[in-house]
Design a protein around this nucleic acid. Structure first.
Lengths: 256, 256
DNA sequence: TCGTAATGATATTGTCATATTAACATTATT
DNA sequence: AATAATGTTAATATGACAATATCATTACGA
């Protein structure tokens, strides 16, 4: 392939080339359901992913990740964005590439190398869609339930990897903000973290991120116009301080 | 593409498909040169990457990352391993996938989607090769120098990304071990970290990883047969304690 | 029915013994 | 001289619990 001298006598077609380079997207959302509309209380939250029921061959009838083939005129990221927009209607969300899936035989249609992304979509963006068409062929599944299902292709492996990735990112970056309103209480934040990372437990969580705030500074108190701390009693009798994320990205190190 | 019913009347060839799916590998190594053979002293270390001078079209004569096209019968990772083996002769090294490069027009040969890996190779493995053939068309460059060069394709972007990735990993995982002997002194470790992450500076580095060892436990003292602490005076008159990495992988979190 | 006191649920602060950190100075070894 | 390792000290952080604060809701007695 290195032997030609110019474009005209270069021929890639001498070689076997891939039959397609799709992107697949693991769309995460956290659903909230109120425990009891009578009382003030934190909602029950659950981590869910969006799946689509396949129509045609292969894996007809089975559930699969949304995704589709890339065009020559777009990058993989653009392709994934387009697919995300087509499936959910949302455009401005956090989406990250995380792995390639290329094991021979992974797709019966041929030599197809898939590029996996995960996206974090706030439930409020998906709400519209679910009202629009409650088509039974696109819906959210609790992630643990999805992992028990017989998904198409190697999509279970992809979901497993995505879940690992999002858990890692939840603890090491500020992606929690994607699942929270602009202003939130500490227990909302705590709850979101636990929804994604069930093992997470910190006794003195409030202490940790407020007292050490001077060092970390990843969140800050919200003040109202008059400079007074702004609070909310949406979830409790006693009002809780509201916080927001700063745009600081913490630098973690095992050697510090 | 979903409309067919079976394999026989499914045709991927109706669509434009990629002209190739190569892997490119950023091979990092740290070279050590003794300051002064008369005196005992820590060597000068430098982070380097391996580049190859291209022969044919396109970008003939320019330096590029090692890599090559994937076959249908192998995964991307296998492809990268094979290329790494072909270029350096080494087989058992730390290699990680980190990104895909798919911007339209990135390769004049056509629609070519490249998969980028980085590998960490101890200089002792590359030593043989450099003796073998001192061919001027494969050699190590200091990474900062490589970033100044006019590399082929989008390889400068790939190297930049790889450097960012390896710096992050150096601080958050134990990949430093790839650049160190099995048993090493604290200042060797410190020096390796600084070679990769020039900004890294910890006043009480020894304190950090020994006194807090109970909590982190990522390294441990090496003991000799009789249970006595094993030391080395390779770099100094006064013997230094030797350490080794445990197989513990630390869990970092911005919320703890 | 109305006013007031209890209750429940969550948020937040207090306490205190112990551990860790940062910065700098000093000593060890050969 | 060069590298390795320890000492000192004040400031800060941590962990585990106990104690308060807040206030919508509920209970209750007059």
């Amino acid at each position: 392939m290195e032997s030609s001298d110019n474009a005209s006598n270069y021929s890639a077609s001498k070689y076997r080339t891939p039959d397609g380079a799709p992107s697949d997207i693991v769309i995460f959302s956290i659903t909230s359901t109120e425990k009891n509309t009578m009382k003030k209380a934190l909602p029950i939250r659950e981590l869910q992913i969006l799946l689509i029921q396949r129509k045609g061959w292969p894996y007809a009838g089975q559930w699969a990740l949304p995704g589709g083939f890339c065009n020559e005129s777009e990058s993989m990221y653009d392709c994934a964005l387009r697919e995300l927009q087509e499936e959910t209607g949302v455009t401005d969300v956090h989406m990250e590439y995380f792995n390639v899936y290329s094991k021979p035989g992974r797709d019966p249609r041929g030599w197809i190398i898939s590029h996996a992304f995960f996206a974090l979509v706030h439930e409020k963006w998906l709400a519209n869609r679910r009202a629009d068409d409650d088509a039974a062929d696109v819906r959210l599944f609790p992630v643990e339930e999805a992992l028990q299902m017989d998904l198409a292709f190697d999509h279970r492996e992809i979901v497993t990897d995505a879940l690992g990735k999002i858990r890692e990112k939840m603890l090491t970056t500020t992606i929690a903000k994607e699942f929270l309103p602009e202003e939130f209480t500490i227990s909302e934040l705590y709850q979101v973290i636990q929804t994604v990372v069930p093992d997470f437990e910190e006794r003195n969580f409030i202490r940790k991120i407020t007292s050490t705030q001077s060092r970390k500074g990843i969140i800050e108190e919200v003040l109202d116009r008059s400079g007074q701390p702004k609070q909310s009693n949406r979830y409790s009798q006693r009002a809780a301080q509201l916080y927001r994320f700063t745009d600081l990205t913490p630098q973690l190190s095992i050697y510090s």
